[in-house]
Design a binder for these strands. Sequence first.
DNA 1: TGTCCCATCCAAAGCGGTTTGAAACCGATT
DNA 2: AATCGGTTTCAAACCGCTTTGGATGGGACA
Lengths: 347, 347
Amino acid sequence: MNLKELAAKLGLSPTTVSRALNGYPEVNESTRERVMAAAKRHNYRPNTRAIRLATGRAFAIGHVIPLATRHEIVNPIFADFIAGAGETYSRNGYDMVLSVVPDENEDDAYRDLKARGSVDGMILHAPLMNDPRIALMHDVGLPFVVHGRATGTDLPYSWVDVNNRRAFLRATEFLLDLGHTRIGLVNGLEHMDFAIRRRSGYVGALGARGITQDPALMSSDEMTEVAGYRAAGRMLDLPDPPTALLAASMISGMGARRAVEERGMEMGRDISIIIHDDDLSYMKNGEDVPIFTATRSSVREAGRLAAEMLLALVQDPTMGPQTRMLEAELIIGQSTGPAPKPAIPKG
Amino acid sequence: MNLKELAAKLGLSPTTVSRALNGYPEVNESTRERVMAAAKRHNYRPNTRAIRLATGRAFAIGHVIPLATRHEIVNPIFADFIAGAGETYSRNGYDMVLSVVPDENEDDAYRDLKARGSVDGMILHAPLMNDPRIALMHDVGLPFVVHGRATGTDLPYSWVDVNNRRAFLRATEFLLDLGHTRIGLVNGLEHMDFAIRRRSGYVGALGARGITQDPALMSSDEMTEVAGYRAAGRMLDLPDPPTALLAASMISGMGARRAVEERGMEMGRDISIIIHDDDLSYMKNGEDVPIFTATRSSVREAGRLAAEMLLALVQDPTMGPQTRMLEAELIIGQSTGPAPKPAIPKG
DNA sequence: TGTCCCATCCAAAGCGGTTTGAAACCGATT
DNA sequence: AATCGGTTTCAAACCGCTTTGGATGGGACA
């Protein structure tokens, strides 16, 4: 059932039917009702392919997912972001198209989506320091929103981000207040902007208390369980091991916990751990009592907000760059406690 | 730059240019080369919106993601499947459109995607027992592939699935061979087909050795860390606790591990754990030595295979239902060992 | 009664490709 | 020179919708 057939059945022109369905004023209310009723009765749905061609709009938002070789973006965090964004899209009648491409083709993917007219806007994931994609997107000329920020870029752009620096600053201060002075950082990859900011918060807090940073207590790797395990393990095996750890994610934290428990230590007593909790639906930080003390900020909510921002930009491209900073909460769980007294009693 | 402009520049008709670019035989080779060169030079990309309308095909595959209220599908396993499938799509010039909808609208979402012509085929996720979506999809009339199977459905359909029953049968036998007789099952939700099959494998293996099943040793819940923790904890606190556990996923297993370690036990010595490992990119089961003994089958690979199967079906709809059964490997890790001698010597 | 203005509806021209049916061209054959 | 078959090209219709630019008709007003 298409527009023409429906119009014929009603004894009206396609023009009028189209207008009636799309709420244009120049159609008699009784006619509109008749059209609406007939549309429902015949289960008419306008063909999106035709709408897209006719309007020149795609009613779709693109997400490019680079694959594998450089680093892996398809992680649980990404999944939750997508879920949040997708929710917003479908509520607004937009499709979400994911383009999974080998990362050497990433630039082409953005250009292609634009040139072939498959999307009206895009979300940029996992921005790096000086991320070249910001310039690329300006060149491409499609509205876009970055999930995160790209330090070093001087071009304007819209973003939604967590205040990563402040989150890790506060987490570090919290540990310092508990008497910890040897604090290890199990960070994400530090070519990623968020990881740089987190480190800056960590370093800043230490500096403010006059504690000099120790490179042996700072690691940077993928946010996987295994990487967290490895990094934590290395630090714990130092002659002068940390009494507290800061981990980049729930998953890193689980790895760290494995390393801790493997060494017969107990979290919250022998060693304190704070993680950043993205509030993933499948990886909740415990139930009533949080497992980990954590800086928490829902990445799903970030997805929703980024999508809303982007749709607004798509609807009104004259709107200038928008920004939205989310603050992480500091949630106290069972994984932190006062710094243990040194093993060799000092008095 | 569109087709008409390009044709004008070349002094050719749009027809010829279109044919030249699409490899039709009725165009002079020298003309084709001239056209190809010009297309590249002017960076011409055909507008997908127009192609879609003209050909009546969407060049896109749909995935419907029901949201939240019933159960949560947006999990790391899903993410990896999507990554695998997406890879195949883009290699074949197809888009992947995700439709994230409140689950009470799930049926409408399938119908909508078809009626509005946004996709040429769909993948069905997380099939249930007697899943009504199989009938729905037959009604909708688009090619589709199910990731998993739907026990109880008598309609034909294409699927890609892991041999879940056999995997859990073998895992259970492995534990029995190690002398375990009290084996707990930390299963996924048992309205999901894969969970039913796993239980059937587990029950089957016990039965074959004449061990009567104990309802207290069988749990069914979401595959989250917390749920795994809770289920394992409950079993461990029984007067007659299990000496081994079978967990539904890496994440459930991590929860189980937490419960185990919280009780001062050691995995592989005091209690054996086998998990099902979907070989998730962000949640590898250790490095050289696996953390958990596991039944392993890459869900990402399943995504690739399902996508390939679907594209074949889309290209040739007369092709009958296809099926593909994947066997899980049994990987020996550090989490299993012989059943501990009973605490109170019996003889 | 004739005009004018609205409210309402419609024909037709896009959108940017694909595809059908026919025309133009060319060398070969009679 | 006329005919023919094959190759190459093109004009125009079409996909299913939106949107522009009228047309139509009826009531208000002079």
